[in-house]
């Protein structure tokens, strides 16, 4: 696998992991007011989907940064913020107001500036 393929797969899988976790801690949908205990999370397939994706994404990330400069790889991580926002709309029915898109854009610019300096 090429290093950039590993990088992108890592970012996409890492973003999916966060969406899986969110789905796992809200058992009856996004509007649920009920809470789950930590141990009951172990019975949720979404929790395991999170754990599995997280471990694979971390492995792919290490594979990628072994061959790609970190100063290039790090700002790429911010595309994960956009992926998570899009997935949260499509899969979790989250509402993403305009201000949140602006905030995501500003944070991404900040991350790019940090890693270019």
């Amino acid at each position: 696998m090429s290093a950039s393929a590993a990088l992108w797969l890592s970012i996409i899988l890492g973003s999916c992991a966060q969406v899986f976790l969110k789905r796992g801690v809200t058992p009856s949908g996004y509007s649920s007011s009920e809470q789950r205990s930590y141990l009951s999370l172990l019975r949720s397939p979404w929790f395991w989907a999170w754990a599995f994706s997280f471990v694979i994404a971390t492995g792919l990330w290490l594979l990628a940064v072994a061959r790609i400069p970190v100063s290039y790889a790090f700002p790429m991580l911010s595309t994960g913020y956009v992926i998570v926002a899009v997935l949260s709309i499509l899969l979790l029915k989250e509402r993403v107001p305009a201000m949140r898109w602006i905030a995501i854009l500003v944070i991404t610019i900040g991350v790019v500036v940090i890693s270019r300096n």
């Binding site: 509402r95 854009l105 944070i107 900040g110 500036v113 940090i114 300096n117």
Partner: peptide, 22 residues
């Protein structure tokens, strides 16, 4: 570096904006 401080400031600004995003 100064540029890095600028980036840090921009991230903090973005996180602050996020607080007003619903």
């Amino acid at each position: 570096s100064q540029g890095r401080w600028a980036g840090i400031g921009i991230v903090v600004l973005g996180v602050t904006l996020m607080q007003f995003s619903g």
